[in-house]
């Protein structure tokens, strides 16, 4: 554990909690892509199956449980409790275009051809592109609420901090996970355009160009 990894995890947690609180407080999920949130729930579910097979630390286990619980709560709020406010007409990204190729790739390129490992690999690949329905939705409507941009900022910051964490671990621990690093780089790149707009538009409800 290093400071970049810890702040990365906390950024990730901040993003998840910001989104959950926004929906809860405003009683609305307008502008939020339910499809991205479903994909994130699928990411956490397939990645954290190792909760049943290996114990790493109390921190590790509790964070996993919190991420899973929050992502399911978010999906519940969008598709059940506040379904009336869900902007399904603008959430038109075809998720099968992500899930199918990512599924195929996780069978072909993985560390070990075993069920748990393939599911872990699937989750890593899927996470790197899971935000696309959300970005697609914003590009369709042309704008995002301030709080939604904060959510995206913390999501992007989390992966950027993980990249620094991996550089750190490579130099100081000799740790290098090619699959995680490549997917992490892809994921971070997807946020670059957004980061630029977030900072130049004064971190407020930006009108984001398509």
């Amino acid at each position: 554990m290093n400071i970049f990894r810890l702040t990365g995890d906390l950024s990730h947690l901040a993003a998840i909690v910001i989104l959950l609180l926004k929906i809860w407080k405003t009683r609305s999920c307008a502008g939020i892509s339910g499809k991205s949130q479903l994909l994130f729930a699928l990411v956490f579910t397939t990645r954290y199956l190792d909760l049943f097979t290996s114990f790493i630390s109390l921190y590790n286990t509790s964070m996993k449980l919190i991420y899973i619980a929050c992502s399911y709560a978010t999906v519940y709020l969008i598709y059940m409790k506040f379904k009336a406010t869900y902007d399904g007409n603008h959430d038109t990204f075809r998720v099968e275009f992500l899930v199918v190729p990512v599924g195929g790739l996780s069978f072909l390129v993985n560390h070990d051809f075993s069920p748990l490992e393939i599911l872990w690999t699937f989750s890593i690949y899927l996470e790197s592109v899971a935000i696309l329905p959300q970005l697609f939705m914003i590009s369709k409507t042309g704008e995002a609420e301030t709080i939604t941009t904060h959510y995206l900022f913390f999501q992007g910051l989390y992966r950027a901090l993980y990249l620094v964490n991996w550089i750190w671990r490579f130099y100081f621990e000799g740790f290098f996970d090619l699959i995680a690093v490549v997917a992490g780089v892809v994921q971070t790149i997807l946020y670059c355009d957004f980061f630029y707009l977030y900072i130049t538009k004064g971190m407020s409800g930006c009108a984001l160009p398509a």
């Binding site: 995890d9 190792d50 790493i56 075993s114 872990w120 996970d177």
Partner: peptide, 10 residues
Amino acid sequence: KNAILTHDEL
């Protein structure tokens, strides 16, 4: 091979 790999990151 086929040992369960441990992933210590989240």
